[in-house]
Design a binder for these strands. Sequence first.
DNA 1: ATATATGCAAACGCTTTGCATAGAG
DNA 2: CTCTATGCAAAGCGTTTGCATATAT
Lengths: 130, 130
Amino acid sequence: MARTPIVSTALLSLMRERHHHAWTLEDLQAGLAGRDVAADFSSVFRAAEKLAAAGDIRKLTLEDGRARFELRDAHHDHLHCLRCDELIPVPCVIDQAASAAFEAESGSRVAEHSLVLTGTCATCQDNNAS
Amino acid sequence: MARTPIVSTALLSLMRERHHHAWTLEDLQAGLAGRDVAADFSSVFRAAEKLAAAGDIRKLTLEDGRARFELRDAHHDHLHCLRCDELIPVPCVIDQAASAAFEAESGSRVAEHSLVLTGTCATCQDNNAS
DNA sequence: ATATATGCAAACGCTTTGCATAGAG
DNA sequence: CTCTATGCAAAGCGTTTGCATATAT
């Protein structure tokens, strides 16, 4: 190596402290700024891509077309709250047996899946009630 | 009304004849061209948006960031084949019970879901074998 | 006349890349 | 000296919009 990758390192520690959040590049840049790391957008982009390629984080694309990044830990799906626009991790509700059956029947092979539930998160649901 | 919407009509009949396909705007434009309807890209875009708003078709966004349109019929999920890049409809493999349980436990409400399986479709799987 | 559909071209939003600079080994 | 990280600015790419024109009612 020939120089210390400040941005990548800062990104990882930032995300590790709030790993319940799916970050847009803008979020990440703002998050770094809050920690006095003034990184250029392209640097954030490149660092995030590199981390994703390395498998440390995962890249997602929402219906709104913007990329989101999150720490890669145990698999989970997502709930996209239409009220607060957060992308919230939720336990996987895929029926493994059904998935396997589908593979067997159809002759296709499923490597991964991306499930996004759309609705209202618990917090917004509560706020609405009160 | 003040003029006959050629593009919307042509789009619908086009899609009805190959409703097993998820169309990008480019696909749609090319499909129309094959039927001697030379529509501008923006016209295709507007017609597709209008049809989607009217509920005749559905708009999806893939990881690649491009919008796809498909006829709205019975709910199904999708298999995105990484080899041929097709977006293939597959029966829904969501475990309804698990989904309902999740709603109850978490206090959130799920209106819809979008599930994209990623892997290899049966056709490509076969081609690979042979 | 009025309202809508269409084409053309330009604006947009987000992502991605080229190039020059800087700093660690 | 070499190799990578970073910033800056510009290019890309698909989507979206403004405006003028055409056409059916």
